[in-house]
Amino acid sequence: MKEITIHRLEKKFGDVHALKAADLKIPAGSFTTLLGPSGCGKTTLLRLIAGLETPDAGEILMDDEFIFSGNKRISRPIHSRNFGMVFQDFALWPHLTVFENVAFGLRASKQKKDLRIRVQQALRSVKLEGLELRFPHQLSGGQQQRVAFARAVVTRPQLVLFDEPLSALDAVLRDEMRLELTSLVRNMGITALYVTHDQTEAMSMSDEVVVMQGGTILQTGSPEEIYQKPNHPFVAHFIGKSNWIVPDKQMLRPEHLRWSQEDASSLPFTGTIRHVSYMGDRYEVILDMENRTTWTAYHDQRLPVGETIQVYASEHQIHHLN
């Protein structure tokens, strides 16, 4: 398994600067997620790495071997990069059986040895044994997803790319497949690059999250770092709920607010209760604060709307953005 390094990679579509000089390291065996709203450049970056689009400038390295370099005029063709990919709409070939869909990559690269065994193995790992002779349209959405996964990993690729693979599934199935996909990737020890706009997916699945906006990588870090120490107001806004003490400079996460002063060093804040929503395990309280921002806090009882109230937080919970 090899490490992927991206250096000053750039791409324009006409006048749109889809990706601006991006730097990124994908360590071997890690699960890295590109997270951001639509149009942030995450899919473009994925497609550039896959080879489905050609970068305008920059470099892509596998360990210290170039697979793309603008300066050196190297661009390894898509089909010889040895990657796997799970597409958003699965992109299973409708005229091939499940078996042939999975076997495609092996046949295309002439790895005929043990072909049957390897395909069976891949299908067993996604619990689809016995369905080899079905056609894609005879499978449920979740099963199609598994075939797409088996197809992407059967060739033991250097890197598996996931392009919002869960977005085509309904909510219940999505939660189920999220857990399953994570454990499959972990068990196989695959290097994975995953694209999503869903922060739950990003936070729960990844070793490393890369937050992107407007063609730029804003922050790279573990899910905990991204949540607790966002380095950019957009990251703080986009992931989780944020309460701003000084807009775009100092923030607090809702779970760190207290309803009483626990020690003398806690800071008090005053606000008016605008709305209370019952979430089952707690009440979510929306507060209009004196500094004209809106905060979120959690409580175990229903509070009366319209009441002015004090909330407290200790100094070290406040995150200062630089």
């Binding site: 992109a91 409708p94 295309a108």
Partner: peptide, 26 residues
């Protein structure tokens, strides 16, 4: 030409293989 052909190239199929196994049958 959308994802079906792209999927073929990512999974290791050069042009003629893609043409033979994916485009022509479809």
């Amino acid at each position: 030409g959308g994802n079906l052909e792209e999927a073929a190239s990512v999974h290791g199929a050069p042009f003629f293989y893609r043409f033979k196994r994916v485009i022509i049958p479809l």
